[in-house]
Amino acid sequence: MVEIRGLCTQFDDVVIHRDIDLDIEVGQMLGLVGGSGSGKTTLLREMVGLLAPSKGTVRLFGEAVLDPDPERRRRLRRRFGMLFQQGALFSALSVHDNIAFPLRELHTLDEAMISDLVLLKLGMVELEARHARLMPAELSGGMIKRVALARALSLEPELLVLDEPTAGLDPDRSENFVKLLRMLQKELGFTVVMVTHDPETLAGLATRLAVLADQRIVACGTAAEVAAVDHPFIRNFFSSGRAAAVRQGVG
């Protein structure tokens, strides 16, 4: 599903990634962890083609993300959805129009169909029809995440990319959001790649972990496999009390 080969990233003189290889199979839920500033979000942005790596290739669904042919690129971009850290809802559009936006861009659906699809997606993320008319500025943090998720899911993506899905939510809301994501994943069967700091989220969602440290992926596999690797960051990560949950939850 995702195939990264020999990826290097360098901003001026600062090396972020050195020779990274990573594979993600269909149906996996991969959690990318690493210290702050280790380039997790950068790797995620390179994965979806927002950023060109200095060296190496990223292939999604067997096709290059940065394909020179714009038509192929557009088609590829319709096959995954991304949930941004702050939601990145279009603040000038209502909730309904935000979710309808990718559908309208297809130019093949009529308004009645789009409206039905939007209501269905709203139902999937457990929001009500009356919320559709609100503007993003009127939503709470948890609702923004839900609407952003509904928008990311509107084209029925095969891959969902999550950047800190539960950042800025209180523990209760974040638990609900994780439950919702897990339920939707079971129902729709998409593959998930996520970056998160929150061990609870990791335990609740990820089936595999990839650890980014020292500019490379030092370990990738189930929690048990990762914990067996001897590396200062991994030792530190698993020794903290909170992460006990991760070890139980993942794998």
Binding site: L119, L120, G123, E128, R133
Partner: peptide
């Protein structure tokens, strides 16, 4: 069938 039931559950905005 579960998916179709979800579609059945769509309540159009009545306001």
């Amino acid at each position: 069938r579960a998916l179709l039931e979800r579609v059945e559950g769509i309540s159009p905005d009545l306001q």
